[in-house]
Design a protein around this nucleic acid. Sequence first.
DNA 1: TTGTAAGCGTTATCAC
DNA 2: GTGATAACGCTTACAA
Lengths: 350, 350
Amino acid sequence: MNIGEIARRAGVSRSTVSYTLSGKRPVAPGTRKRIQDVIDELGYRPNATARALKEGRTRTIGLVIPPAGSRLTHMQLEFVAGMADAAGRADLDVLLSPSGGDHDRSFERLVSGSRVDGVILMEIRLEDPRVGRLQQAGLPFVGIGHTAGDRQMCWIDIDYAGLIAHTVRHLADLGHRKVALVNRSPELVASGYGPAHRAREGFAAALAERGLDGIEVPCGDDARSGQECLRTLLRAHPDLTAVTTINEAALPGIQQALDDVGLTVPSDFSVTGVAALPWAEDFRPPLTAADVPALDMAGKAVSLLVERIAAPLTPPRHILLAPPISLRSSTGAAPTHRLARASGQVRDGR
Amino acid sequence: MNIGEIARRAGVSRSTVSYTLSGKRPVAPGTRKRIQDVIDELGYRPNATARALKEGRTRTIGLVIPPAGSRLTHMQLEFVAGMADAAGRADLDVLLSPSGGDHDRSFERLVSGSRVDGVILMEIRLEDPRVGRLQQAGLPFVGIGHTAGDRQMCWIDIDYAGLIAHTVRHLADLGHRKVALVNRSPELVASGYGPAHRAREGFAAALAERGLDGIEVPCGDDARSGQECLRTLLRAHPDLTAVTTINEAALPGIQQALDDVGLTVPSDFSVTGVAALPWAEDFRPPLTAADVPALDMAGKAVSLLVERIAAPLTPPRHILLAPPISLRSSTGAAPTHRLARASGQVRDGR
DNA sequence: TTGTAAGCGTTATCAC
DNA sequence: GTGATAACGCTTACAA
């Protein structure tokens, strides 16, 4: 069934049906009703493909996600869902494209097949070839995260450097003198993953500013690695009294490791960082952390892209989000009997 | 840049370029090379929209996901990524459509806008109006999960009933006499969510078969709810020695609650269930569980849909997956001093 | 107020 | 072996 069929049944021309649908030119009430009745009866909806071909735009945006192999973080997942939601509200559809791995074909289809009006690129690396490819293709795009040379692109990101620095200052204010940063996985750090590098920078800056002692360690994105990581850290640095992290998936392991050696949060040890809400709330006690506003960020990314599609030549905008630190109960004053742990008092090694 | 431009530069007609691309009719080696050179030089790729319009198919499948508000489980997220991967391998694109909430427009666009060749429907309820809508539209689709009256649709699902029954039998074999099922959230149960209902059925069946005593409780999909749920359960049923669950997000809380009352897994208490691999492995000790093969399932769903698109009139196929139970170390013989807990020996209420 | 017709970029049928 | 040309279903000048 097509627009011609509707026109025939309503006894009008195809253009009148089209104009009834779009409202771009007045249609006599009688005719309009007759047409609308036929449309309702047959459940007609214009063919999106034909419309896209004619209009030269698809009302669809591409979303490039990390490949399935790499364990998606909760934040990423929420982001994908949030994007579909936000796009849906703007009457846009979302075309998913896995990236990395052996999915170059899929990315190429997106970039050069005229299937989308614009692209949102997740998981940007400090050096990212996809950015060049999109620029060369002249396709509007917005990055979640930004490259090292970021002037020429539009992006939205979380201010990991600022937030981690903020948490370190918070710990310093509470009297902590030696803190650790539990970073993302070694692989991600090695591949130039932006958040990992910027967290590191912010950490170093805040340490220097407050004259604190600090250790930064990479850590796999799972509970087991988190546990192992913190255990090692506690052994090597008995005077450590706090950690901050951007590795939300490691949080359950961090909690477990502290539990294993009998350290109570926050009286014996403080934990803080940047994490999606569920992780922060599931921590025991609830985590003092900057809550990553994934849904809000997804919405802003879509707006940014829509804006860019409408005006591709305006100078690129950048949004750096710095959500406030939610004070919950996982941070407290540094323990005064700071070296108790060094003397070997562990409750239960299990 | 379009096919005409390529034709002009290569000094041939548009059809020759088209045939060079598709290989559907022989082209002289010389002409072919000339054309290919121009294509490579300009980086030309045919316009997917025009092709779709002409061919009457879009090479795109729709994926209907739950709305962003509802906390996505790890399994669902992995499923989305796995789908994009599997589709990409088949040179198909994936159009995302949030469902539920106020996203009817998006679903309608998918169903009646001729934007996709077929649809994969996630999170099917026992009674699901979207199924009828898709059937009425005559659009091929595959459900992840199945409705109560499932004969007329093609689906793939996990055999929650069978798997939960299996875990109960396993516990019975180990001597447990009273076990609990920690189900999904009350809201999901109330809304007729299939896995929750089928887990319940399998649980009841296995209890009856083995003459066990059992309690089934709904539980929110997060660690906090899991902890609360198990705490309540342990108080109310001091003779409980094991739980099985399909609520992976509750696992960390279950672990925490057992820890709180000083129960050691598996010597004092056994835990098992159906869960995505990361959750099972992050449990301490690693969880004896049926590992949900989300990636594999996504691949099978795509194949099923591709098959159905090719032959829409064949009788619908159903795939019920029953992954083997991976024996890890969270289940053990029922404690012989079974009522120790009832006598009030808790280590630490913290 | 409505109708006619061109054209979006492809593919595929027909002719040569 | 290759070229013209008619669709695919829609939107939108341009006519009437």
